[in-house]
Simulated scan of single mutants.
Amino acid sequence: MAMLRDWGLALGRRAGRPVARVQKDSGDPEVERIRVAAAAADWSTVRDVLEGRPESEDRTELVRAVGATAGAERWIAEVLAAEPDAPLPRLVAGFRHITWAWEARTAARATQVSRAQFEVFHARLRTAEEWLYEAAEREPGWTTPWVGLITTGRGLQVGREAARRRFEAAVRRDPHHVPVHQQRLQQVCAKWSGSHEEMHAFARASVFGAPGGTPLGQLVARAHIEHWLHLDSRAGEAHMTRPETVASLREAAEHSYRHPDFVRSGGWLEVYNTFALAFSLAGDHASARECFAATEGRVTEAPWDYVGADPVAAYKKHHAASRR
């Protein structure tokens, strides 16, 4: 799976009905603005956008958008040289090197990645770590550097204890930061260094340790989707349709998007899309329809890229199944 993806939405209409589309941003106009500026090597605009979005309002998506821009590693090097003490260029350089590292590795299974690819992957991640630690040292209150460090730590296989310390450093700064928890969930998956039991326990503790209406509710749905992916088709279907699985999804939904305090801002579409897939796989078509209706055809890249190369096609397939 491609790492550090930006989440996206777009809404079209055909004959008065929503047409599902995917676009790599959350609908925040500043994401597109910063992406255009990054592509043009316009550091002045990139800096203005980032400085205009405080850490308390989660600027992770904006930094990721710059990091995902091809060629950004060239112009950010010039900025680093020109601003040797500034934390923002280091933050951007760190995220660019993370994305650049996974571009070299690709989304292939480890057995299909060459030694040369792994060498480039690890070298770029080590460079990312240097920039991110420097950003964190210059701005101790920032959470975003730690989002990056949790990711680099997983790629570099720093070990369970070091990975745990990085997560704890992040949540000390922002206890309910969604990208931080998403990255930690990946760390405790069976496919990395954890287990199904640890993954589900982490998801539940994170969700129910947060106030009602939390967007972290999606972690429970993501955990079940990860579990499903790890199994063969028959065992995966059996897991998703277990009464216990359906009950856990409904309980998380009640504490998340069904809660009266849930706010449709930030990554709210990601919450609905993730629950839509989980409920669809679980055979709870009424709950899936509820989530699909809330999206109004607006498709986030994840979780649909888990179930097909084309997120829109996967969304449409499960949407159709939920209406039968």
Rank of each mutant, 00 (worst) to 15 (best):
A235F: 10
R90P: 09
H224S: 09
F275G: 09
A41Y: 03
A108M: 07
M199I: 06
R109V: 04
V49G: 03
R13C: 05
W102Q: 07
P243G: 13
H255E: 09
R14S: 11
H224I: 06
W100P: 00
N273E: 07
V46S: 08
G159P: 05
F275D: 02
Y133L: 15
G266M: 10
D310H: 02
E301C: 00
E61S: 10
S265W: 08
G141V: 11
W146F: 14
T127L: 07
A108G: 04
D174P: 01
W192N: 10
S248A: 15
L4N: 05
G212K: 10
H318E: 14
R164T: 15
I76Y: 01
A169S: 15
N273K: 05
F275R: 03
E55W: 11
D305E: 13
A70C: 00
E78P: 00
W7L: 14
E244C: 09
W7F: 14
L277I: 10
Q157F: 11
A107C: 01
V66A: 09
W304Q: 02
R13W: 14
V120C: 03
W228C: 11
K191I: 12
S248H: 03
F202R: 04
V246R: 15
V307N: 00
V120R: 15
Y315E: 07
H318G: 02
P18L: 06
L50C: 09
R105P: 01
L9T: 14
P29Y: 06
A314L: 02
L216W: 00
E129K: 06
G16T: 02
P175L: 12
K191G: 03
R17A: 15
A302C: 06
P175G: 11
V188Y: 04
E139L: 05
S256C: 13
W43Y: 12
R165P: 01
A210V: 04
R138G: 00
E129F: 01
A135L: 00
V120H: 08
G266R: 13
E30H: 08
V92Y: 04
V312D: 02
G209V: 09
I76T: 13
E32Y: 03
A162T: 12
G283I: 03
A81Y: 04
F121N: 02
G27C: 10
A190C: 04
E244V: 12
M3K: 06
R250Q: 15
S322K: 03
A293Q: 13
T300N: 11
